Amino acid sequence: MPGWLFVPAGLALAFVALPIAGLLTRVPWLRLPALLATPESVDALALSLQTCAASLILTIVLGLPLALAIARSTGPWAAVARVLAVLPMVLPPVVAGLALLVTLGRRGLLGAHLSAFGIEIGFTTLAVVIGQTFVAMPYFVIAVEAALRTLDPGFEQVAATLGASPSRVLSRITLPLLAPAFVSGAAMALARALGEFGATLTFAGSLQGVTQTLPQAIYLAREVEPDAALALSVVLLGLAAALMAVSGLVNRAASGVSDG
C-alpha cells in the first residue's frame, strides 16, 4: 500500500470521528441517568426497541426469500427486482414516508379500502414498523444477495444429486453457508431501523408512546431540552456502534474460517 494513501485515509477517519468526539464532549455524563429516566426518554427507547425488533423479524421474513429469488434468477425481471429492492436505500426518507402514506394512509391507494374495514395503519405503531422495514430491508437483501452470488454452487449441486429436496438443500446447505452475511445484514438493517427518522415521521407522526421513536425524541428535545437530546443521542450512538461491531466481528470471523 503506498504510504501517501494514509494521509487521505486519516482525513476521512477524522471527518467521521471528530463530530462523534464533539458530541461525546458535550454530553452531561453526571446527569445521564436522570435524563434517560424521564417519561419521554423511557417511552422513546422502549418504542424504538419494540418496533425495531418487529421490523427486523419482518425484514428477515420478507428479505431472505427476496434475496434468494434475485440471486438465483436471471433475465430482465431479476435486474428490475434488484433495482426495486434496493431503491429505498437511495430515496430521501421523507419521500419514502410520503410513498407509504399515499399507499397505506387513510386515503391511500390501499389504505382507503382497509379503512372501510376499520383497519387504520397510518399514524399508528404499525406504521412505524412498516416505515422502518421499508428503509432497512434493502441493507439485509443486498448483503445476503452478494453472499449468495459468491457461494460455491457445488455443495448445493452435490446435495441435490444425492436426492435432497430444494427445501432441504436450502435449510441444510445454503442457509448455514450464508450465516455470516445473514448476521451482518441483519445488524445493518437493525441499525438503519434504529436511526430512521424521516419516513416514520411522515407516515406515522410523533406521538409519545405510540409513534415517537428515539430519533424523533432527539429532534424534539434539542430545542427545549438540549441535554436530554444529547443523552438520547449517546444511547442511539452506542446501540448503532454495538451493532456495527457485531457485524465486523462476524465478517472477520468468516474471513478467518475461509482463509483457514
Rank of each mutant, 00 (worst) to 15 (best):
G22I: 03
A143P: 11
A229W: 15
L237E: 04
S41M: 04
P93L: 01
V80G: 00
A99D: 02
P65W: 02
A21L: 15
P39Q: 01
L178W: 02
L11Q: 00
A116Q: 14
D43C: 04
V16W: 06
L230S: 13
L148G: 08
L101S: 01
L175E: 11
I218V: 15
A231Q: 08
A147K: 04
P92C: 00
G185D: 02
A186G: 00
L190W: 06
G248C: 12
R149K: 13
L62W: 04
V102Y: 05
T125M: 09
V246F: 10
A12S: 12
V257E: 15
A146R: 13
T133F: 09
V95P: 03
S167M: 12
S167A: 14
T124P: 11
V141S: 03
G105P: 00
M188V: 12
A242V: 14
A254R: 07
A193C: 03
I20D: 14
L177G: 09
S258V: 13
R82G: 01
A9M: 07
H113N: 11
F134N: 12
F15S: 15
T125E: 13
T202D: 01
S184Y: 03
L30Q: 15
L175M: 14
S255W: 10
V169Y: 05
P166G: 07
I60V: 15
G10I: 13
V86T: 04
A217Q: 08
V27W: 04
W77T: 06
A191T: 03
A17Q: 08
S233V: 11
A85T: 01
L11R: 03
A221D: 14
F203N: 06
T51R: 02
G75P: 04
P65Y: 03
T125R: 08
L101R: 01
R26P: 06
S48Y: 03
A181K: 02
F117C: 13
W29P: 01
P8Q: 09
P215K: 08
V86W: 01
L194T: 04
P92V: 00
G185W: 01
P39F: 00
L24I: 14
A9E: 06
A193D: 00
A193V: 02
V7R: 10
V141I: 15
T59D: 10
R149D: 11
V257N: 08
F134C: 12
V158Y: 05
G75R: 03
A164K: 08
L18S: 10
V250W: 10
S167F: 09
A240R: 05
G238H: 05
S171P: 02
V250R: 11
V246Y: 12
P76F: 07
S255N: 12
R222H: 07
T174Q: 12
A229H: 11
Y139T: 11
L68A: 06
T38L: 01
A159T: 07
G108S: 01
L68T: 08
S115E: 15
A245N: 05
A127F: 06
E196I: 04
L98C: 00
L201M: 12
A136Y: 08
V129R: 07
V210E: 14
T124Q: 13
A231Y: 09
A37Q: 11
P153A: 06
L32F: 07
G205M: 07
L220G: 06
A112R: 09
V128Y: 05
E120Y: 07
P2H: 06
L66C: 13
I70A: 00
V246R: 07
I119C: 02
A240C: 15
A191C: 02
Q132H: 07
V135S: 11
L58V: 14
T124M: 13
L151S: 10
